[in-house]
Amino acid sequence: MSAYLQQSLKEIQKMVSELAGVESIRNIVVKALSSGVNPIDVVDAMSRGLEDVGERYERGEYFLSELIMAGIIASEITNILKPHLEKSAEKPAGKVVIGTVKGDLHDIGKNIVIAMLSSAGFRIVDLGIDVPSEKFVDAVKREKPDIVAMSCLLTIAMDEMKTLIDKLKEASLRGGVKVMVGGRPITPQFAEEIGADAYGSNAVEAVKIAKTLISRGGCA
């Protein structure tokens, strides 16, 4: 790769991590692609930039707004790359079926997690809000995801997470899919008690966990 192309990728990474304006990032990505940069290398540069954003958020240097903005930027880049990636047939990082469990209509946290997972290359099947466990089970049968991710904000809806895990077991689907949970009232202890594989306290952690679950090779 020429020094110019390498410099372009470094620039993309830096612009993502420093949350440069969407328009300027779009321009540099388009320019890099027309100069012959491999779209997969752009994805890697973007991912490194996003990882940096996540680390800054965890260190308290960045705030929720910056996390959301990084997701918006990544989504813009992904849209530009989509036609190029389809040609190169790049495999997604994994497939996640996600929803806010039955009894809860809140979706802000879930949507931020979706933005971050999508940015990290995961294919997302969003079941929406107030999702009954039967709908999750049907989606697991149909979509064959690597991960089922459940979110809730209301304490009253927490037990629905256990209901879904039990239903996945009843349907003999539990062994083929990892389950991660998150949301305001959820704790690591609760996740363990109900038999989830992992708990994420925020969107950055959710991405890390999803990657770890996939890399463990336990997924379908």
Binding site: Y57, G60, Y62, F63, L64, S65, E66, R184, S201, N202
Partner: peptide
């Protein structure tokens, strides 16, 4: 704020 801290930078 959210669980981790303010929703936008303190400067904002």
């Amino acid at each position: 704020s959210e669980k981790k801290g303010p929703m936008v930078p303190v400067k904002y």
